[in-house]
Design a protein around this nucleic acid. Structure first.
Lengths: 238, 238
DNA sequence: CGTCGTATTGAGGAGGCTCAACTAAGGTGG
DNA sequence: CCACCTTAGTTGAGCCTCCTCAATACGACG
């Protein structure tokens, strides 16, 4: 689908009842997407390219057009924690006191719509629905963060990995065919960091799933889910 | 201060630069608060009272007026995970597909403004700034969830507890005097669950801090921070 | 084809969970 | 008002998982 041809996309599960339960849908109308495309500039990034750095003045917010990106937070001592991965139709760059709180970096080659904050605010003023859809999108991201809190805090390594794989499998931009093939563009270290594990533990968890015949891996970045039922049993032990 | 006399309050760190860095401020004008008070109904809850249950149809969103509440998510097997504690000027009840995703329960006696979703939406349509401030508030909650993800995933029990205590100490509605006294209205089990620990581990961590002279406890719900510097050292190990 | 960063595999140790006993506190009914 | 019961909280012993450290294999790059 020529998503990008229409301009920025925003996908989330809406507040309202009318939509089918639990399924993310496009929030913006064609008109809104065209309008956003007009006030936005497209910026492309090569793998590893930095979109913005934590602490930098926040003059724009970004909507992912193509590619995969990650948000991370650098601690004083130099270590970094991966907080989230982003895909097309996600929004990043929400500021605090005029500055970005985290850094965002491209994992794959990526394109983003950069929307000037003041321009966006002006658009919000004119288009109530657009404004509301952004509220909806941020709420959706909040819920995802909360859902992640559960699996991060209370579950073991196998469960975390299973949850992660289900999440990636549910993401249309990583699904390669209808038969469980998933593309994992990010490095193992990033995944481990994201899940609050060490690279070693992640490796062992993946190896165990392979031994059990739940998944198989060809290349380091390509994985196939063989037994979705058992994967889900691992992901959802309670 | 007679917060509640003015109507609902919304506190968060705004997007914009102009405010002092990193300090939560009142987002609403007196007029907005009065307006919200008019379209809202006040509902009171005794300790343990359920504000709404996960899965219930979401017809209202709630703004905390008085008291402390918790959000939790019940799993199939009956166990519950505490996702957040809420204080005056916080917003809860953001829905997904017309239903609440989590349950909210009063920890102490509490009062909430219940705002009908449709009425609120109508107000958003008329008052751009009000709409924008809600976006700001939700963004703020998203950032807090992300910050918590870091300490949940990568740190040990002592660190988690230290972070929690600093958070509670930073909350004006729990601070009892200027000298480190903090009121912890929630049960130890809730705290442990919230931090992703068992009650036993939490108990041991608190005991250790007492032995080290960092805190002291009188009653189960009252705690005093004696050495803020060392507490912060525990909370922020990297 | 060599080199360096990334990924996997192995052994050992620390921290938190489980299980269990015990104490404290709050609530009920006699 | 007190005895009783129930639930929350504390403390201890043992086990299990995940992290740490170290060595090795793989792969992307020049």
């Amino acid at each position: 689908m020529a998503f990008t041809a229409l301009g920025p996309s925003l996908r989330a599960i809406p507040f309202e009842r009318s939509w089918p339960q639990g399924i993310a849908t496009e929030l913006l109308t064609e008109g809104q997407r065209q309008h956003l495309a007009e006030i936005a500039t497209v910026r492309t990034f090569r793998p590893g390219g930095l979109v913005f750095h934590q602490g930098a003045p926040a003059d724009a917010i970004f909507i992912v057009s193509r590619g995969v990106l990650k948000t991370f937070h650098a601690n004083r001592n130099g270590t970094q924690r991966v907080l989230a991965f982003w895909f097309p139709a996600d929004v990043v760059g929400l500021a605090e006191s005029g500055r970005y709180v985290n850094s965002v970096q491209a994992v794959t080659a990526a394109a983003m719509y950069a929307v000037n904050v003041e321009a966006l605010k002006a658009s919000f003023r004119r288009d109530f629905a657009l404004h509301f859809q952004f509220l909806c999108k941020v709420t959706h991201e909040l819920r995802e963060a909360q859902a992640r809190l559960i699996s991060m805090a209370h579950h073991g390594a196998l469960c975390k990995v299973a949850v992660f794989l289900e999440m990636m499998q549910g993401n249309s931009s990583l699904r390669e065919d209808g038969n469980g093939a998933v593309w994992l563009p990010m490095s193992r270290m990033d995944v481990a960091n994201y899940l609050g594990l060490t690279a070693e533990t992640l490796s062992r968890a993946v190896a165990r799933m392979k031994r059990q015949g739940i998944i198989e891996t060809s290349d380091r970045h390509h994985l196939r889910i063989l037994d979705r039922t058992r994967l889900h049993a691992l992901a959802d032990p309670g």
